[in-house]
Nucleic acid binder design. Structure first.
Length: 430
RNA sequence: GGCCCCGUGGUGUAGUGGCUAGCACGCGAGACUUUCACUCUCGUAGCGCGAGUUCGAUUCUCGUCGGGGCUACCA
């Protein structure tokens, strides 16, 4: 039931464009987005670009790109904090005029009382008290006139009507400063929630140093956005004791700050891989094919998707498995040596003949019947026949199912490749 | 150093003043099987430590240790 008396929540994601969006930032964006979508609220995007050195258009575009790929759409923005610098300057003036701030060597500092404390109410951690004795008068405007982070954030959150600030743990110490600025302006601070940081495998705050941790890296590594969303939602949050898979609708409905954990999480790509594989197998084949083409920029035969979908963990697993369908590769030496020794070539020859005389259509059923017939006639194990065929047509011992592979390749090309292998066997063999 | 946050298997989490501490990934073994993968079964491993409160603490309190964050005229 809606409470029409309460203003609808306004949340924001406010990254600084210092490079790529890593999964920690992506998770913060996701949580804000889920909260907004689950409450009929508004999701605001604001770029904290007051550091002109790092805030390049390319960096900003990277962030927007990553958010679009994750399908986290924003209702307002992106606002540029830099473009609001005149407004920030006005507020500084007001604080100085009101006696809350003063000039010091060209810069402006906020006056922090010597005694007392500022308490912030955190939705995840409860009340946190900061003794003023530990906070010195801090700079809110540089001597060149530009505003500093804490000032800009406080003013922007205020002006943009932000009701809930959900951000990383590393901002806890900044919060009392922002609250003090707001109070000096006679304004009430928004509600705060500080998420535990994501750590790298070394236990440190996640950064660019930690390998494939950016959203664009994950995209290039062949992960699906829905899998990434599901996975990162679970980094720091759990719904119950056993649910692992959530549709986006379920996440929107069930996500709740009160169930966000307090301790930092470590990104585990193994689990993402597993989860991505599960999502991949659920995909409609046409959809999967479209995504493969989009990522790899190569045309993908539908039958290649059909025979590899069960075996992929990420989209980048595709070509190594299915490449043989569009291109003859070299024979892997170890694979060749393993299957072509002894009577390998003989069995391959038998398989060749059986395939040549299998009827029409040359489909999975006929291929299987033909090859199993050879196994039976020769009185050998299935793999004694299948593996040589596999190596002959794919070059390696690892491939999709052999019947499917042969049928997808087609009779003509299959026979041609087997012939080539047989020639090679007789040329280099005994 | 000061201030602040956090501490359940290797990883992500669930959970309770009394349970065989649950689930998932990973790892190991087995089943299936034409390779790989999938799937299934079984197994592996955890409440940082020390006091206190209590009939009883993983759970509550204090301390301690450990990890992390902030402490910029960075964001």
């Amino acid at each position: 039931m809606m409470n029409v008396d309460l203003p609808s929540p306004r949340l924001r994601f406010a990254p600084s464009p210092t490079g790529v969006l890593h999964i920690g930032g992506a998770r913060t964006a996701l949580y804000n987005w889920l909260l907004a979508r689950g409450s009929g609220g508004t999701f605001v995007l604001r770029i904290e670009d007051t550091d002109r050195e790092r805030s390049t258009p390319e960096n900003v575009e990277q962030i927007l790109d990553a958010l679009r790929w994750l399908e986290l759409d924003w209702d307002e923005g992106p606002y540029s904090q830099w473009e609001r610098r005149d407004r920030h300057g006005e507020v500084v003036e007001r604080l100085v005029d009101g006696g809350h701030a003063y000039e010091d060597e060209g810069a402006v500092r906020l006056r922090v009382p010597d005694a007392g404390e500022t308490v912030i109410h955190d939705a995840i951690r409860g009340d946190i008290a900061f003794p003023h004795s530990a906070i010195k008068d801090f700079v809110i405007r540089r001597s060149d006139g530009s505003p500093l982070y804490n000032l800009a954030v406080a003013v922007d959150d205020l002006d943009m009507g932000i009701t809930h600030v959900v951000r990383g743990d590393d901002h806890i110490s900044n919060t009392p400063r922002q609250v003090m600025i707001l109070r000096a302006l006679s304004e009430e601070p928004p509600a705060y929630a500080h998420l535990p940081l994501l750590h790298g495998p070394d236990g440190k705050k996640l950064s660019k140093r930690h390998g494939a941790a950016s959203v664009q890296d994950l995209r290039e590594a062949g992960y699906l956005p829905e899998a990434v969303r599901n996975y990162i939602a679970l980094l720091g949050w759990g719904y119950d004791e056993s649910t692992t898979f959530f549709t986006t609708e379920e996440l929107i409905e069930r996500f709740d700050l009160s169930r966000v954990s307090k301790n930092p999480a470590v990104f585990d790509e193994q689990k993402l891989r597993w989860m991505n594989g599960r999502y991949l197998r659920e995909l409609d084949p046409d959809d999967l094919r479209r995504r493969l083409e989009e990522l790899t920029g190569r045309e993908v035969p539908p039958e290649a998707v059909a025979i590899t979908q069960e075996k992929m963990q990420t989209l980048t697993d595709f070509w190594p498995l299915a490449g043989f369908l569009v291109q003859r590769g070299p024979f892997d030496d170890r694979a060749w040596a393993r299957v072509m020794r002894d009577s390998g070539p003989e069995r391959l020859r038998a398989a060749r003949d059986a395939l040549e005389h299998a009827g029409e259509p040359f489909d999975v059923e006929r291929v299987e019947a033909a090859l199993r017939g050879v196994v039976e006639r020769l009185g050998v194990k299935p793999k004694d026949v299948f593996q040589p065929v596999r190596v002959a047509i794919t070059g390696t011992t690892v491939s999709p199912g052999i019947f499917e592979s042969v049928a997808a390749l087609g009779r003509e090309e299959t026979l041609a490749r087997i012939d080539e292998a047989l020639r090679r066997a007789s040329g280099t063999g005994h």
